[in-house]
Computed example of a mutant assay.
Amino acid sequence: MPESLDLVMTPFLTLLIMSAVSLLAVGPLFHVVEVTMVETTKYLLELPFGLSGLFVGFVWDLIVITGVHHVFNLLEIQLLANEGSNVFNALITGAISAQGAACLAVGIKTKSKKMKALCFPSTVSAFLGIIEPAIFGVNLRYYRPFIFGLIGGAAGGFTAQILGLSASGMAITALPGALLYLDGQILSYFLVHAVSCVVAFSLTYSMGFSDKMLEKK
């Protein structure tokens, strides 16, 4: 591109080309992926003996780090419209608090003031339903806390399915998500989070993190 035209033409051509590629190639491809994910999840929700909760609770945080987790809003809308309740929310909510608990374990165990200052706000954010700070800021950086958070999420999802937990709405999880379970399920809801948090916290605190990891980083 000639320098005299660069300021105008480069952004214009970039947007023109990438908009066409997005509309004609990337968009349709990801639409197929999204539909496949939703249909697969609908099938998994029918698995018995807590297997649905075990699997969905484990993989949910893996889906979150890809950024495509909002696709499942379509599934939740379908569940609410067809079933009158949202079992999917119940299976994933423990995975949210589990990452927060793993992050909290790192914050309590470390002697680094800088790490503590990162962990504790990220933990609060996770318990309010936003887990990206805990995942990307702490847990995923040191691998083990993230893995133990996945295990905690699986335990919470398993418990939720065994208890028959099902939300009356969508879009919120963790502590704010309690508003969706005020129809006599609130104790079961907090039990699910207790299981998730205890598993994730105890595993992370006992063998998921040490300050030697900070030195390697």
Rank of each mutant, 00 (worst) to 15 (best):
A174M: 04
I172D: 12
V124W: 03
A81V: 01
S125R: 02
H70W: 07
A20R: 14
K212M: 13
F209W: 07
G156L: 09
C119H: 04
F201E: 04
F30S: 06
W60L: 04
I63F: 07
G177S: 02
K116I: 05
L175F: 12
G94F: 07
E39A: 14
T14A: 15
F148W: 10
V192I: 11
F158W: 00
S85E: 04
A160T: 04
F201P: 09
L203G: 14
G94S: 02
L191F: 14
I151D: 14
K216L: 13
V124Y: 06
I96D: 08
E3V: 13
F55S: 09
F209V: 07
I135L: 15
R144M: 08
L23Y: 12
F30A: 10
C103H: 05
I186V: 12
F12C: 14
R141T: 04
F120D: 08
C119L: 04
F30P: 05
F127R: 06
E132L: 10
G153T: 03
G57A: 11
V64F: 00
A102C: 09
E3I: 13
F12R: 09
Q78M: 07
S22D: 13
S52D: 00
V59K: 06
Q99T: 05
R141D: 06
A25D: 03
S112C: 11
K217C: 03
E83Q: 06
G156S: 08
V198Q: 01
I131P: 04
I151F: 11
Y205L: 15
L75P: 00
S97W: 03
L104T: 02
A134V: 03
N139T: 06
K42Y: 00
C197H: 13
N82P: 01
F148Q: 08
V33R: 08
H69I: 02
K114V: 02
I17D: 05
A194C: 06
L165S: 05
V192E: 10
P11W: 15
F58R: 00
Y43P: 02
G157S: 08
S206R: 10
L29F: 11
M37C: 03
V106W: 04
L44H: 03
M213K: 14
G94K: 01
G208H: 12
G157I: 04
K116Y: 08
A171M: 06
I17F: 15
E215A: 15
S168G: 09
M207I: 11
E39Q: 12
H69A: 12
N86T: 00
M37E: 05
F136C: 09
G184F: 00
Q99L: 03
A200S: 14
G156H: 08
A117D: 15
S4E: 15
T110Y: 12
L180F: 13
L203I: 12
G57W: 01
G53V: 05
F120H: 06
I135Q: 13
S168K: 09
P11V: 15
Y142K: 13
L175S: 10
P28D: 01
G169T: 01
K111H: 07
S168V: 10
L180A: 10
A155D: 00
L180N: 13
C197R: 05
I96H: 05
N89H: 08
G169N: 02
